[in-house]
């Protein structure tokens, strides 16, 4: 799928902020299933964007603004080409060993027992993970939202959650079964309902590598998932992390516009 898209994140302050710092993971990194033909990240008011790489190999931009600030507008736009690789994420530069993705970042609570039951002694890891994704998709209702995730155990008990919350539950479940798993943030190019910024999980299968599992939608990422970055949890992969100094409240609005998305097809020329 080839798509031209524009993502805008507008941060409004109820009262002028004195200064603000942002860390952005809004630049997709190319891999076997993704070509980035053109990409741009910008902020308004204009500030120096410093490009770097985080500990997981994601491309990050950081910037600081001096106040007074009423709002900050972050724009990421570009042209990408995606391929359906059945969720396999190959060709990324992996900076961290698998053990990092086995660390329990939060207590799995009841999720551990549930994962064991869902996998039911399945020895083929890939089959087991598909079973786990289906089970979680069945059990937890997808309620799109754009807020920081609650602890995974709490989401699991509540029975519903946003894409990022469901991704964290999947990660916790896989790790409880000693399967390396990580959190992925990204965008949906198919214009499906939900928050503009999507999230899913990736788990490691020997011989295949990292494979995406989207338990919110119930299938592995296809060509309509645009991958922005990964980390051990939501916060280490968050598309935007910001902090500001002042007395204001922050209100964030995210908009995603896809101006052209089409499938590749044979063009017959006479």
């Amino acid at each position: 799928m080839r798509a031209q898209l524009t993502l805008q994140i507008e941060v409004r302050f109820s009262d002028a902020a004195r200064s603000a710092n942002q860390l952005l993971r809004l630049t997709p990194r190319a891999f076997d299933g993704l070509h980035v033909l053109d990409w741009f990240v910008g902020v308004e008011p204009v500030a120096t964007l410093r490009r770097g790489e985080d500990g997981f190999g994601n491309i990050v931009h950081s910037c600081s603004h001096a106040g007074p600030l009423d709002k900050i507008l972050i724009t990421a736009e570009g042209l990408v080409e995606t391929q359906d690789a059945a969720g396999v994420t190959r060709g990324l530069h992996e900076k961290q060993p698998l053990d990092v993705f086995l660390r329990h970042h939060e207590s799995p609570g009841d999720i551990a027992a549930y994962a064991a039951q869902a996998l039911d002694g399945e020895t083929d890891r890939l089959t087991g993970l598909h079973r786990l994704m289906a089970a979680l998709h069945e059990k937890l209702r997808f309620a799109p939202a754009d807020v920081p995730p609650r602890p995974a155990a709490e989401v699991f008990a509540a029975g519903e959650g946003s894409a990022r919350e469901l991704a964290q539950v999947f990660v916790a479940a896989a790790r409880a079964e000693e399967i390396p798993a990580r959190f992925v943030s990204g965008l949906r190019l198919d214009g499906g309902e939900g928050a503009p910024i999507h999230a899913w999980a990736e788990a490691y299968v020997d011989g295949l590598g990292w494979i995406g599992f989207d338990s919110a939608l119930g299938f592995c990422p296809r060509d309509a998932h645009l991958r922005l970055g990964h980390g051990v949890d939501f916060f280490s992969a968050a598309p935007r992390r910001g902090a500001f100094f002042g007395y204001a409240d922050e209100k964030v609005e995210t908009r995603l516009a896809i101006s052209s998305a089409r499938q590749a097809s044979w063009q017959i020329q006479q």
């Binding site: 500990g55 997981f56 900076k95 060993p97 698998l98 053990d99 990092v100 660390r103 280490s236």
Partner: peptide, 17 residues
């Protein structure tokens, strides 16, 4: 052993490299 280091809470992936 690798897991002793990388599964350790005190290992900071952010500092790798």
């Amino acid at each position: 052993p690798q897991d002793l280091i990388f599964r350790n809470e005190c290992y900071r992936p952010e500092m790798q490299g």
